[in-house]
């Protein structure tokens, strides 16, 4: 067992290090989910995004001043390796589309949906449910504004889990405390999903 995980929940390390999680989008949700999963001991991540780091990302996304102008998946990969040098990272720089997502994430144990736009969330969630009916997908919906934490919920049906208030829209603005809260709920749902059967 790696010394890094001596304080982890006993019995989880050997399970988590053999898991691959796909993360579609490396913004407010995706970058923070990737960070928490790396700290938790997930062994492999497939991260995909088409953007560069901009200064406006730094209020909520896991990037730093000297990342500005860098490709997000490159910057994030560096940060994740700085947390755990043993984490395996497959990077895809480019747009995730309805034509390539199955290939990009063909070998993952769980997929995290971390897109900005609701229409894109819809095609990814529904496409995944149709084409990968046995692989869980965990998504975010409603993490904007300054609404009460009590409004944030977890809703599940079959392979789909959605975290968020399912109401607030990014036109209300995005603040770190709420975005990262939902990102960490998603990360924890990933961990719970993996461990629910294997720790019985």
């Amino acid at each position: 067992m790696s010394e890094m995980f001596l304080r982890n929940v006993p019995g989880t390390d050997d399970i988590l290090k053999n898991i691959t999680v796909g993360i579609a989008g490396c913004g407010g949700i995706g970058s923070n989910v990737a960070t928490s999963l790396t700290r938790s001991g997930i062994g492999s991540l497939v991260i995909a995004d088409m953007d560069m780091v901009e200064i406006t990302n730094l209020n909520r996304q896991h990037y730093f001043q000297d990342d500005i102008g860098k490709i997000k998946v490159d910057a994030l990969s560096t940060h994740l390796s700085n947390i755990n040098p043993e984490v395996k990272i497959i990077k895809h720089f480019g747009k995730i589309t309805a034509h390539n997502y199955l290939e990009l994430f063909h070998d993952v144990d769980i997929l995290v949906e971390a897109f900005d736009l609701a229409g894109e969330k819809k095609w990814l969630i529904e496409g995944w449910m149709k084409n990968k009916p046995n692989i869980p997908i965990i998504a975010g919906s409603g993490l904007s504004g300054i609404g009460s934490t009590a409004r944030i919920k977890i809703q599940k049906s079959g392979i789909l889990t959605i975290c968020g208030d399912q109401e607030s829209d990014m036109s209300q603005g995005l603040i770190a405390s709420r975005v990262i809260l939902v990102a960490n709920m998603i990360a924890h749902e990933v961990i719970s999903e993996i461990l629910k059967d294997k720790l019985k």
Binding site: G30, D116, G119, S141, S144, D169, L174
Partner: peptide, 9 residues
Amino acid sequence: SVFHLAHGG
């Protein structure tokens, strides 16, 4: 189950 999908991620 009806899931509402909101912008923001």
